[in-house]
Design a protein around this nucleic acid. Structure first.
Length: 597
DNA sequence: GCCGTTTTCGGCCCGACTGTTTTCAGTCG
């Protein structure tokens, strides 16, 4: 492990990770909670700083950064300067390895892990599971049968997802790998296939495909990438490696004639491929990863190959129009493609802004000025500031009074932008909490002053399905609520969605003219792509939002658009593709309908 | 460990929820 991470550049994320781990280690030791929080806070500060700390250290500019005092300052300096930190190493050595992993299990925090370790000697998940099964946990003071059951459930969940990864983590690697491959002289064509190309929100491993006349050179190049931490297998035409973060990737090298067939074969979901091959059989052909062959012939060599220069040719040969990778899930794409009814899907470049974002007035990292000028520079037309409302204390939710001040400040900024002739506007809004009883955190008077209102749930996740559903339906019925934010509250690989009747919510949104968010935060991607066709059929509009906490998160739009495509959405289904004037008109349509303006 | 300062140490976000207790501790957001 040590070798692995010391080879990684000390970027801000890595520094933040180490500071955070120090915080957890100190908690496990039972240190003063405020001291441990100081490390967590410092980690957040580092993570939220745009400038690289390597640069700040080099230029001796660490002084005066809020949340980083003398002690942590010297630790960061050591970390950046030497790539290691003595204090951190000693701390890690003083605590059994594996305890930190236990704190990641739901219902287990540092205090409970410390007790389990002291009373039962538990240091890893397997030992913890044994202890649960033997009923030892329930015997300990402060624990009981329910704790035992919850821990076992948590372990089951953890195991289920241990080999799964967020789409964004895979894309960050595949973007890097594809750039490398494209620049390699022996690579003719290359692409990422598999679930990454299909834009599945969670992926197991990655599949890269290359066509080349010199496979071994490409294989060598691939396995020697600096981000590869170990090579699992390496042969003449294929290799498997593990990247940083534990993601496995396979590379296959084929000759260029085979490339489209291999790409289609390794991209399609299992079910999609079965149907593709069935269609080939109906034409009297054979389809596999090497080609489409005329089966009347006995042999399957290149002589019988039905040539296709790209995937589109393959689909056309089978009597289908082109099916985008995102749709290859056997969710009706064949019926549509046979009738040439595949919709023209949303492109991420058609998105003109994000309608759900935070600033440093709540839990975002940047000021309104920075956000406005940055978003304008990105070429966006509009960007909504929707900070958290007062009840979200964990997110530094703002009061009604503060929100009124923010509305004024945003007006000032827009006035300045207009003077400069900028074609951009900052919208004032709120992500208002839907409280446990279904009331909103702010009254209608205040909401009516805002350009945009998002209603989201951040509390009482454990309510029965009917109650949670009613909460959101009630929110949708408010004339001032434009959209329901992250409707299921899931955090991919971390937290299950709360129980909710999505169909009932969609019906309520259709009835009231309320939009539903497709939250493009990598851990959310919520509402799930599987529900969007139903929403679209009901006429519910989608907003693809970054949930940005800093401007760099604008990049999530690409991720969100991929999920929207997976949900068969076209530009017409997505409100933030509208030109500014049309969009402002759309913003007021619900209020006009309810005659509240 | 950080901050602010009535410069030498007290306060640091806070409420809901859960499971365990019977008045509370730990976790979570």
């Amino acid at each position: 492990m040590i070798l692995i991470y010391y080879n990684i550049d000390m970027n801000n994320d890595r520094i933040a990770e180490i500071l955070e781990e120090i915080g957890t280690l100190l908690e496990l030791k039972g240190e003063n909670p405020f001291k441990t929080r100081a490390y967590t806070n410092a980690a957040n500060t580092v993570r939220g700083t745009a400038e690289p700390f390597e640069k700040l250290v080099a230029e001796d500019r660490l002084q005066g950064i809020k949340g980083i005092g003398e002690s942590i300052r010297s630790k960061i300096t050591e970390l950046v300067g030497t790539g290691r930190l003595e204090y951190y190493e000693e701390l890690k050595n003083s605590i059994p390895a594996g305890l930190i992993a236990l704190t990641q299990l739901p219902t287990l925090g540092p205090k409970k892990v410390k007790i389990l370790n002291e009373k039962l000697g538990v240091t890893n998940i397997d030992q913890l599971e044994d202890a649960c099964r033997q009923g030892k946990i329930a015997q300990i003071e402060g624990f009981g049968p329910k704790s035992e059951a919850k821990i076992l459930e948590g372990i089951r969940f953890h195991r289920q997802y241990a080999t799964k990864h967020l789409l964004i983590d895979a894309i960050l690697i595949s973007d890097h790998v594809l750039v490398q491959l494209r620049n390699h002289p022996d690579v003719i064509r290359c692409d990422v296939a598999g679930s990454v190309r299909r834009h599945k929100e969670v992926i197991g491993d990655m599949d890269f495909l290359v066509s080349s006349k010199r496979p071994s050179r490409v294989i060598d190049f691939f396995t020697n990438d600096k981000r590869v931490i170990n090579v699992i297998a390496k042969g003449e035409t294929r290799a498997s490696v593990n990247y940083e973060g534990g993601i496995q990737a396979d590379l296959r090298v084929v000759d260029d004639q085979q490339f489209p067939f291999a790409l289609a074969y390794f991209t399609g979901s299992k079910q999609h491929n079965i149907i593709m091959r069935r269609l080939a059989i109906q034409h009297g052909w054979l389809l596999n990863e090497y080609g489409l062959f005329d089966q009347d012939e006995e042999t399957r060599d290149a002589g019988n190959l039905i040539p296709c220069k790209n995937e589109e040719d393959i689909f056309n040969r089978l009597g289908l129009s082109y099916i985008s990778p995102e749709l290859r899930e056997d969710q009706g794409e064949f019926e549509a493609a046979e009738k040439d009814n595949i919709p023209r899907l949303l492109e991420w470049t058609q998105l003109r802004g994000s309608l759900h974002n935070h600033s440093n007035w709540s839990d975002g990292f940047e000021s309104l000025d920075t956000i406005a000028s940055g978003a304008a520079d990105l070429g966006l037309d509009y960007w909504a500031v929707t900070d958290h409302s007062r009840s979200s204390r964990q997110a530094n939710g703002i009061s009604a009074e503060t929100l009124r001040k923010q509305i004024i400040e945003i007006k000032d900024i827009n006035a300045k932008l207009a003077e400069q002739g900028a074609d951009f506007s900052l919208l004032s809004g709120i992500e208002v909490d839907v409280l446990a009883d279904g009331r909103l955190d702010f009254d209608d008077d205040l909401l009516s002053e805002l350009d945009i209102v998002i209603a989201s749930i951040h509390s009482a996740f454990a309510q029965p399905e009917a109650e949670t559903t009613q909460r959101l339906i009630k929110a949708a019925q408010n004339p001032f609520v434009h959209m329901i934010g992250h409707p299921t509250g899931r955090l991919l690989l971390e937290r299950e969605p709360y129980r909710i009747d999505i169909k009932a919510l969609i019906d309520a949104c259709a009835e009231t003219g309320t939009w539903i968010e497709l939250n493009a935060h990598p851990q959310r991607l919520d509402l799930d792509w599987r529900h969007w066709r139903h929403a679209k059929d009901k006429g519910v509009k989608c907003a693809v939002n970054c949930d940005a906490h800093r401007l760099a998160h604008a990049a999530f739009l690409r991720l969100g658009a991929g999920i929207a495509r997976k949900g068969w959405l076209t530009p017409d289904d997505v409100v933030n593709t509208l030109k500014p004037k049309d969009f402002m008109n759309a913003l007021s349509s619900k209020r006009r309908r309810y005659k509240v303006i």
